[in-house]
Amino acid sequence: MESQPLLSVHLSAGYRGKPAVLKDVCFEMQRGEVLSLVGQSGCGKSTLALAVLRLLHWKQATAKGRIVFNGRDLMAVSERQMRAMRGRDIALVLQSPLSALNPARRIGAQLEEAWQIHRRTSVTERLDAVHATLRQVSLPSDRAFLRRYPAELSVGQAQRVLIGMAILHRPALLIADEPTSALDIVTQAEILELFSRLSHDLGIGILYISHDLLSVAAISNRVAVMDQGRIVECQPTARLFTRPAHPFTQKLIAALPAMPQFGCAAQAQIA
């Protein structure tokens, strides 16, 4: 198992009129690992997230290279096979929870539908799955809650719904694209806690994308630092903070108000 990583990426990508957004980005992820990808806004983090899901063409962008997931090169599989993997094997959580939920549909319907895309099951099984996932993200699963529209939720609740939706099928990889940047500090902490618990309990590998070095310290095993479309440094979390190698990383750390307390999950993993 050690010999086969969960995800191995070697990728270049560009938009029309903005060619090299990702320049030979190269990294690997192990099963159950939490890898944080940190960089300034516009350095290509989100592009990378979409590239892994092979959704870049919807943004009029193209990617070249290799994305090996579970031993399969995703650049070579058909769109049909890719679609079957999205949401089931690789899930996505977006930055702004309220716009990522369909404003015109009830929460319950959206969760049920996310289930139905990949599983044809009875209504009871479907509802059980939805209830289970809501419990996992610490949300109520009563009927009244399921009948709410996204606009009737708090931002934190909405983000939990999205995370619940993402883990519905127990994916091997969860890509979280700035999942906490729209949240207040308290909620942010709760959501981070949720991520590390999920990773721990369910063994889900998480690619955690953020511009905030401080917040990732608590949950990640390793941190990759991105600058101008390149990964300039990739180290276990503790080492990155204590001995940053690249000048850009050093600059990032120097800008921090205080050194982070490392979360227990990260500690355990390293040990």
Partner: peptide, 19 residues
């Protein structure tokens, strides 16, 4: 975003349109 997310959840064209 919600359409992007629906795609990321594996929804196909018809489902996106209707749902």
């Amino acid at each position: 975003d919600f359409v992007l997310l629906a795609r990321a959840s594996g929804a196909g064209g018809a489902r996106l349109l209707m749902r």
